[in-house]
Nucleic acid binder design. Structure first.
Lengths: 201, 201
DNA sequence: CCTACCGATCGGTAGG
DNA sequence: CCTACCGATCGGTAGG
């Protein structure tokens, strides 16, 4: 989907990807509406009209950022979900994968833009994102079902899933990379909050 | 703070309050940056320059909306927190109060703007909000401490509190007034997710 | 990808 | 609270 130009070799830099990355950072920092084309162009040393050589509109840039966020978090969590470990270990690996994408330097701008700026997408792109999100949430629903089956949680209802997604996604608001807690620690603590140890064994 | 004009009687409508309400709704729907002064003025049947008779800037309108949101949720939850019931009943009453403000028609525009648009405040107003929020979160921390003391939860750490606040605040993203679950039902289910019944008695 | 530019719209103000 | 307006800035485009 991102490859309209064939054979982009490694030595010639991919300006389109540069724009997506800069847009993601700015959309995250200032929000979509408060970010101007001139901000984005300046961040990649272009003139203000030049981004439109790569994207047909500002909305199209947002779409690229949001889909990138959806894709990377989806891939990371899907890998954790199919790692073939115990329900509890699988669950914790999924928590870690989700939080890594959300809070880590590699993906946080995309993920945060996905979470907070999707409403500015046009109707068509919004439907695209909703479809992907439904698949993503189904993975989590399955993980909760497995935990319940294993007797590790009492409630695997959709509300329980939304409860968890909220707790996870809200970390964006308070997590600080230079803080006292690592992402892995937070993932472990979140797992403990949901899985009551007295249920084990 | 909102009363610069004295003795606003009931029969003469308070246009300032009208503007705050309209601004709240629009900031919630479209976001602060995407909302124009002309949107707000039009929503209360004014000309585009007139809101500046009541507010010195658009940022000042945002400040009024956000402080209104902070104040109402703070008041509602504080009342629940001091109702003198058992830790568990108090906790559930606090959950209900928070969700009522967040999801109910009376306060949701203010609360949602507080949650999502506060970053657009100037530095000064932002500090104001942070101070109020610290006090608000302290109430929740106390509630968790009480639950732990009563043996109803295993973890009353700050991360547990943030976990809860995230789950609560994320309801804005998925709750639908015409959906199958009432706010009271969601509050009860959230309480059950955190308070393991096997701990009781 | 740059130059040069357009029409539209923005937050805000003077003067009443 | 309206009228009339300002300077700045916006997303986007034509033509190269």
């Amino acid at each position: 989907m991102a490859a309209s130009r064939s054979k982009a070799s490694a030595e010639e830099p991919n300006r389109r990807a540069d724009i997506v990355r800069a847009a993601g950072r700015l959309f995250h920092e200032k929000g979509y509406s408060a970010t101007t084309i001139r901000d984005i162009a300046g961040a990649v040393d272009m003139q203000s009209g030049s981004p439109f050589y790569h994207f047909k509109s500002k909305h199209d840039m947002l779409r690229a950022v949001v889909l990138e966020g959806m894709d990377t978090i989806n891939t990371a969590v899907a890998r954790a979900a199919t790692s073939g470990k115990s329900p509890r270990a699988t669950f914790e690996a999924m928590l870690r994968a989700h939080l890594d994408q959300l809070l880590g330097s590699a993906g946080r701008d995309f993920a945060a833009t996905l979470l907070h700026e999707s409403r500015h997408l046009d109707r068509e792109a919004q439907a695209e994102v909703v479809a992907l999100k439904d698949g993503y949430e189904a993975m989590w629903q399955q993980a909760l079902n497995d935990l319940k089956q294993a007797g590790l949680i009492a409630d695997d209802s959709p509300v329980a899933r939304l409860f968890l997604m909220g707790a996870l996604n809200w970390t964006v608001q308070w997590y600080r990379p230079d803080g006292s807690r690592s992402v892995a620690q937070i993932a472990r603590q979140f797992a403990r909050l949901l899985i009551d140890d007295t249920h084990r064994g």
